[in-house]
Design a protein around this nucleic acid. Structure first.
Length: 213
DNA sequence: GACCAGGCACATC
DNA sequence: GATGTGCATGGT
């Protein structure tokens, strides 16, 4: 089967099994941006607590967050783990967001995708997955987000090599699927869904919707 | 009480 | 370029 057909088959099976995932689980683009950093190597539940804390403290907007002393910010996001590192990362990002785009999502969206990605990757603490998550889920740019689940699920089902790189995986999707924001949004979310569930451990793959694909 | 979670930067070879 | 390590909480 051709690459494109194979990927479409994967998508169809996942979508038929799990349906719409309603991602990203954040209310605003800014919440997606902050969440993308906070969820690095961290369970989303722990991130939700951190975001609730930030909202509860009344500091969940770019200007206020930048002004909050790092020690206090770290305490507020404690539940998300790596809190000292993430405090720096958040502030680095917020400085960039404010300096370059006046903390305006609308202004940011007007910039070319390739330029945005370069700029995001230039922010210390923003790597490929975080940059792409912000591009797709906050700015609605057609960029495929790769993560540990994408690689795990696809390699487990012998669709890609176990040691395929981020770039290789991203190209696989970008070269073989229409650059559609809705499709990329749903597809990534479905990988997380199946990765957390049936594909987590080999034995459970018996009931995996991707079995035998 | 291990083990892992929607990464990333940095050091070292 | 590949490989190893620190960062840290909370759920299973």
């Amino acid at each position: 089967m051709r690459r494109a057909e194979r990927l479409t088959a994967v998508y169809d099976r996942l979508f038929n099994a799990f349906g719409t995932q309603h991602w990203w689980p954040g209310e605003t683009p800014f919440e997606v941006m902050a969440g993308a950093i906070l969820t690095q190597s961290t369970n989303w539940k722990n991130v939700e607590k951190a975001i609730l804390n930030l909202k509860g403290a009344g500091v969940f907007d770019p200007d206020t967050m930048l002004a909050v002393p790092s020690a206090r910010l770290a305490l507020l996001i404690k539940s998300s783990g790596y809190f000292n590192q993430k405090t720096k990362k958040l502030k680095n990002y917020l400085e960039f967001f404010k300096d370059k785009y006046n903390a305006s999502v609308q202004k940011m969206k007007m910039e070319a995708t390739a330029t945005l990605r370069e700029q995001l990757l230039g922010v210390k603490g923003i790597g490929k997955e975080t940059a792409d998550s912000i591009l797709l889920y906050a700015l609605e740019k057609p960029v495929f987000v790769v993560d540990a689940y994408t690689s795990r699920v696809l390699s487990r089902h012998n669709i890609i090599s176990e040691d395929a790189t981020y770039d290789e995986l991203q190209e696989l999707f970008m070269d073989n699927l229409p650059h559609d924001v809705k499709l990329f949004n749903e597809f990534h979310a479905l990988f997380v869904k199946v990765g957390k569930g049936f594909c987590k451990k080999n034995p459970e793959c018996d009931r995996c919707p991707l079995k035998g694909i």
